[in-house]
């Protein structure tokens, strides 16, 4: 579903991502972990085609994000680390806007908005302007908007930040259901417990270079993911 081939991204002299290669198959939940500034967000943005890169290529469903960005974006959803949404819209207007852009049928959008908003307990706040939302509410809205067009691939940057325990649980459930239906998820996180319990595969990145990747069992061995992470990165995690 997602294939990152020799991705290199430089900011001036600094190499943010160095020759990164990863592959995520349909039905997989893939965790992307690393210390702050390791290159996780840069990689995720490059996958979405919202940040240019210097070398390599990225394929989504067999199509390059460089050559066919409209197709790759149509089947992908993205949630950034900080959900800066349109504050001047109400929650429901924002969701309707996203549904319009992704061409979601009228009946489907009504049903999905009702179901997802209800799941996250956001229904009664949908008429409020987003400017009045808390960080967690904005994050919930961003999650609903990501699921509204039923994408094949969902890319998320720190999706659990700001969510209450119930919402975190619901998100994990949704992630599992999405993958059971053949979809894929690629997300970065610092919550190693969640990554360990939820993910099929994991990649650890340090200073832009891939340190290790593979199935959770392969990477972790007999240790916990936290122990492996600290060993590999030398306790640099803040």
């Amino acid at each position: 579903m997602l294939k990152i081939q020799n991705l290199t991204k430089k900011y001036g002299e600094k190499c943010a991502v160095d020759n990164l290669t990863l592959e995520i198959a349909p039905g997989e939940i893939y965790a992307f972990i690393g210390h702050n500034g390791a290159g996780k967000t840069t990689t995720l943005k490059a996958c979405m085609g919202i940040l240019s890169f210097d070398e390599g290529n990225i394929f989504i469903d067999g199509k390059s994000v460089l050559d066919d960005p409209m197709y790759t974006k149509q089947i992908t959803a993205y949630i950034p680390d900080n959900p800066d949404l349109y504050d001047f819209l109400s929650g429901v207007k924002y969701l309707n806007f996203v549904a319009d852009v992704f061409g979601v049928e009228t009946s489907l959008r009504n049903e999905r908005i009702a179901t997802l908003a209800d799941k996250f307990g956001l229904t009664k706040d949908l008429a409020q302007p987003i400017s009045s939302y808390s960080h967690g509410m904005k994050q919930k809205l961003a999650i609903i908007s990501a699921w509204i067009h039923s994408p094949k691939l969902i890319i998320m940057d720190e999706p659990f930040v700001g969510l209450d325990p119930k919402a975190s649980f619901i998100l994990k459930e949704m992630m599992r259901e999405h993958c059971e239906r053949g979809g894929s998820i690629f997300f970065s996180t610092h919550v190693l417990d969640v990554a360990e319990k939820l993910c099929d595969k994991v990649a650890i990145i340090k200073d832009g270079r891939l340190v290790v990747s593979g199935s959770m069992d392969e990477v972790r061995g007999d240790e916990s993911l936290e122990e492996v992470f600290l060993e590999l990165l030398g306790g640099e995690e803040e």
Binding site: Y86, L89, G91, V92, N96, F97, A99, D100, V101, G103, V104, E105, T106, R109, N110, I113, A114, T123, K124, D125, L126, A127, Q128
Partner: peptide
Amino acid sequence: REYKAKRLVRRSALVALTGK
């Protein structure tokens, strides 16, 4: 104001963007 569900109608991407 508590949200009262209304039927949301589909618009083209350009109309949605312009409305926004």
